Amino acid sequence: MIEWQGKVNEFSINLGLLKVIDLSSNNLTGHIPNEVTNLHGLLVLDLSDNFLDGEIPRDIGQMTQLLTLNLSRNMFSGEIPPTMSQMTLLNNLDMSFNDLSGRIPLGTQLQTFDASAYTGNAGLCGPPLPQKCSGDDDFGVPPVGETDGDGESTNELKKWFYIGGACGFATGFWMVCSALLLNRRGRHVFFSIS
């Protein structure tokens, strides 16, 4: 329900067509309404540089089409909702300069964003931030970019990736060649088409 110039209008069907909400730098106050999370087709949500407070809605992960989410420079508190791990298309995120706390949800692309997307939240911890969460030492979870060895883990991973790719290509190539060599009819069909 939106009241505009003394008239109250209800928008329900048309909201599904909404793709961008940019309410940045408007001195807005209060909480984000939970109903915003029902806008499943939304691509951009920018609420930055306001005075919004409270927690980020728990169901924000339902907004799976979201490409850009900017909640920076507000007064949000609490944890980053674990449902954000469902936002796999997200390629631009800024949650900096709030009062967020707790662990950044693991096992998602949330660790792929630069640490600057989370700066200004003294209570946040876990990758990609350098602050370890309590219990990280117990489970042996190294921060992003750190290893127990000599710092060669990224190079080691790349090396095994290329070795695996080369072995897979060679195996597939020789299987095709062997099939053509051993199967006379297949060989004739393959070379007559070419």
Results as ranks from 00 to 15, higher is better:
residue 108 T to L: 11
residue 74 N to T: 13
residue 109 Q to S: 10
residue 85 S to R: 14
residue 88 T to G: 13
residue 76 F to T: 04
residue 97 F to P: 00
residue 82 P to F: 04
residue 94 D to T: 10
residue 109 Q to R: 13
residue 88 T to L: 14
residue 78 G to S: 13
residue 111 Q to A: 15
residue 109 Q to M: 06
residue 99 D to M: 11
residue 103 R to D: 00
residue 103 R to Q: 13
residue 73 R to W: 03
residue 104 I to Q: 04
residue 96 S to R: 05
residue 105 P to Q: 07
residue 88 T to P: 05
residue 110 L to K: 01
residue 76 F to W: 03
residue 96 S to I: 08
residue 106 L to Q: 15
residue 104 I to M: 12
residue 74 N to M: 14
residue 105 P to G: 11
residue 76 F to Y: 03
residue 104 I to E: 03
residue 96 S to W: 01
residue 77 S to E: 06
residue 94 D to L: 09
residue 110 L to Q: 07
residue 79 E to G: 09
residue 93 L to S: 01
residue 102 G to M: 07
residue 75 M to R: 15
residue 83 T to H: 06
residue 74 N to P: 10
residue 81 P to N: 11
residue 109 Q to Y: 01
residue 111 Q to T: 15
residue 79 E to T: 13
residue 86 Q to W: 03
residue 86 Q to I: 00
residue 80 I to H: 04
residue 80 I to K: 11
residue 90 L to W: 00
residue 84 M to D: 01
residue 105 P to W: 06
residue 97 F to H: 15
residue 110 L to M: 10
residue 104 I to Y: 03
residue 89 L to K: 12
residue 85 S to P: 00
residue 77 S to P: 00
residue 74 N to R: 14
residue 99 D to G: 04
residue 100 L to H: 09
residue 103 R to L: 06
residue 89 L to W: 10
residue 98 N to W: 03
residue 81 P to S: 12
residue 104 I to R: 05
residue 95 M to T: 04
residue 90 L to H: 02
residue 75 M to I: 08
residue 99 D to K: 14
residue 105 P to H: 09
residue 105 P to K: 08
residue 81 P to V: 09
residue 96 S to E: 04
residue 99 D to N: 12
residue 91 N to Q: 07
residue 89 L to V: 01
residue 107 G to S: 11
residue 75 M to E: 09
residue 81 P to L: 10
